[in-house]
Design a protein around this nucleic acid. Structure first.
Lengths: 209, 209
DNA sequence: TTACATCTGAGTATTGCTACTCATTTGGCT
DNA sequence: AGCCAAATGAGTAGCAATACTCAGATGTAA
C-alpha cells in the first residue's frame, strides 16, 4: 500500500528532542516521518536519497547547521519544503532562513500544536513563522534592511555567510560556485559599501547582523 | 491497582523535548511519568504534592532553574532523587549539581538509552554522569567563563583588541611593540584556545566580548 | 642559583583576503 | 533584436594572517 501521507525528514542532534518531534508528527493526520538525522551532513545525504516533501531542520547542529543544509540545496533542481527550528528568536537567523528560501521558522519552545500548523501552512505554500519571532522582524525591518538593499540577491547571501564567519572557500562550497566568483562578489560588496581592509567587511557583517 | 513502577517527575520548558522525555520514560520498564512541569516553580510545587521517586530537571528554565529547585529542597526531610539535564557541558553546573546532592547529570544531546541507564543507576544510589561531561571535567577545558584565565595579561590585551576588529598592525602600534610579537601572541592564543583558520580567533573574540 | 613563565622579536613558508581588470553567459526589458 | 543588470569565472598582484621554530631578556618563585 502506498502512503498518501506527506513525507517528513527531521534533523536534530538531540535524540530526546528528535523523539518528541517524531511522536508529534507521527500522531498527526497526514504526516509521516520518513527519515531522521542527527547532524547536517547526514540530513543532506538523506535529502538526496529519500527526497522528503518537508525537511524540518534544527539550526544548531554539529558538522553542518540547518541553515547550511538549506544553502547547500539552493542549486538543486527539486527541493523539499524547509522548516527551520531554532532555540532563540534571533532575527538574523530568520532573515537568513527566509533569504535562502525556507517557508517555516519555528521556535523550539513553542507548543506542539505549532509544528503541525506550520507543516500544514508550508505544504500549502504559505510562510509560517512562530508568533514570538515575527514581532521581532516587523520591528527591525527598517534598520538593518537598508544596507542589504544595495546588494543583489547573491551578494546578500554571501554577505550573510560572511557574517557567519565563513571564509571564501566555505562560501563557495555552500553555494556550489567557484571561489573566484565568491572573491568577485566580495570585492563588489566592498565597492558598494565603500569598505577597505581585511577586517572591514567581516566587521560590518557581524556587527550588522 | 497500585503502580509498582518508579514515579518520575519531568520538568522542561520545551514542550517537544518534554514530549520526548515522556515517551522514552513511559516506554521503559519500571518507570512512569507521574507529573510534568514547564518551569521551576511548577516543578517545586509538583515535588511537594506528588512526591515522585525521581525528579528529572532541566537546568535552564524560566522562573526557576533546575539547580535552584535542587537547592530549595535541600532541607526537606524526604527528597526525590535528582537528575539534572543540561544543554551545554559546562563543568561549573556539574560541580554545583553534585555539590547540592544530585545523583544524575545528563547532557541533553546524549542518547535516549542514557536516560534509562541513568535512572536505573541513581535508583540504586549510584552517580550517573554523561560520558561527555566527565571528560570535560578532567580536561577542565575552558568554557566562556574562564576562557580569558588561560591567557597571560598581554595575551588578554591582544585578545580584547582583536575583539575590537583591530589588525596586527594597529595592535602593535597601540601596544608599542613589534608586529612580530603580536603575531606570536596571536599564535600562542590560538594554541591555547585550540583555534585554527583565519576567522577562528576573531570569531571567538567578537562573540565572547 | 635553578627553574619557570612571560614578553619580546626574528626566520620562513603557506594560506587567504583584497584589489583590480576582463570575458562570457543568462534572463529580463524595450 | 538590442540593451542591461546580474552571475559566473579567470589572470595577476600585493598584503595580511596563520603556522610553525628558535632565541634572548626579564622577573619571580622554589
Amino acid at each position: 500500500m502506498k502512503s498518501e501521507k506527506t513525507n517528513v525528514l527531521i534533523a536534530d542532534d538531540h535524540p530526546i528532542f528528535r523523539r518528541g518531534l517524531f511522536e508529534i508528527i507521527e500522531e498527526s493526520e497526514g504526516f509521516h516521518v520518513i527519515a531522521e538525522a542527527d547532524d547536517g551532513e547526514t540530513a543532506l545525504c538523506a535529502l538526496r536519497d529519500v527526497r522528503p516533501d518537508i525537511a524540518v531542520l534544527d539550526i544548531a547542529m554539529p558538522n553542518m547547521g540547518g541553515l547550511d543544509v538549506l544553502v547547500k540545496t539552493g542549486h538543486w533542481g527539486e527541493k523539499p519544503i524547509f522548516v527551520l527550528l531554532t532555540m532563540y528568536d534571533d532575527e538574523i537567523y530568520l532573515r537568513k532562513a527566509l533569504e535562502f528560501g525556507a517557508l517555516g521558522y519555528l521556535l523550539k519552545d513553542n507548543a506542539e500544536s505549532e509544528l503541525i500548523a506550520c507543516q500544514n501552512d508550508v505544504l500549502a505554500g504559505k510562510h509560517y513563522i512562530s508568533p514570538g519571532v515575527s514581532r521581532t522582524l516587523a520591528e527591525s525591518s527598517g534598520t538593518s534592511a537598508d544596507l542589504l538593499e544595495k546588494l543583489t540577491p547573491t551578494e546578500r547571501k554571501i554577505f550573510l555567510l560572511i557574517a557567519d564567519y565563513k571564509n571564501n572557500n566555505e562560501i563557495a562550497e555552500l553555494l556550489g560556485i567557484s571561489i573566484r566568483t565568491v572573491q568577485n562578489h566580495r570585492f563588489n560588496i566592498c565597492q558598494k559599501l565603500n569598505l577597505r581592509g581585511h577586517n572591514a567587511l567581516i566587521r560590518l557583517a557581524t556587527q550588522h547582523c
